[in-house]
Design a protein around this nucleic acid. Structure first.
Lengths: 136, 136
DNA sequence: TTTATACCTACCGATAAGGTAGGTTAATAA
DNA sequence: TTATTAACCTACCTTATCGGTAGGTATAAA
């Protein structure tokens, strides 16, 4: 029952970009230093965020990344789903999982489903702006 | 963000004991067959449940396991914590983790803490009896 | 043309997941 | 007393994931 570093670091990058970005681009080298995260590891996390349009990057001198929306328009749930994959609590609920034959009579599936909803609802209710303002 | 088979199987064993136990002992061989879980793997999960007093086992012919309380007196949260370990969502919140130096100014820690509470509260509100009656 | 940066691919060590295999101990029934 | 049953214990195994590192290429600005 764990969010891995991938998701946690993605959250911190988004917050860092919101706090230090302004209108310009922020180099990952800076973020890595501020957040005490290996630059090389950050470089493995960013492509997913770019692919889903959460941030955009530009090459070369003076380049870096910036948010594509305002901080209040990102939810933690959205960021985590992009960085981590689905937020479901059990493997049998994963999208690509082979359908469980016991699902119909499974005594526990309703609980896992509800747990997924509880987690998703909470995380979808927290925005990057909330995290910066300490309102989470 | 996943509950492993260990926790899921533990839940199913507890439910199975509640449904088929009555006052007597149920052999894991039966449970394994009914639940379609490898007997050998079940034998690795049960010791923790015994150690924490959730079930008790007796050796030999006619032996097996039985619940030590009524089904409505077990919560899913309790069972999962015994089988899986702590239910916290991030490694830095684990009991034995070395304290994070950034904790005081961490923008995300409050969210993880709240998420842990949300998950714990939900799971602590579901009993084995609820799962049997479909009230979860 | 130099420099800074994103971006890409491959690898790597450690750990955990999800088991198997083969025994020993304890209790009951024959 | 002996056979049987079932809990319990220890060791091992395979595969995948975690959390990175290394070394490059592409691109844009100065």
């Amino acid at each position: 029952m764990m969010i891995s570093t991938k998701g946690r670091y993605a959250m911190r990058v988004m917050i860092d970009l919101a706090e230090h970005g302004g209108d310009g681009y922020v180099a990952m080298k800076e973020v890595a230093e501020r957040q005490q995260i290996s630059l090389k590891y950050l470089e493995k996390i960013l492509p997913a965020l770019v692919a889903e349009g959460l941030v955009e990057g530009v090459h070369g001198k003076g380049g870096g990344y910036r948010l594509t929306r305002k901080p209040e328009e990102y939810t933690a749930g959205e960021i985590l789903r992009v960085a981590e994959g689905e937020l479901v609590p059990v493997a049998c609920m994963l999208c690509g999982a082979e359908p469980c034959k016991r699902a119909a009579e499974c005594r526990t599936l309703p609980m896992w489903t509800k747990l997924g909803t509880v987690v998703g609802d909470y995380l979808d209710g927290v925005t990057v702006a909330d995290l910066i303002n300490g309102k989470a």
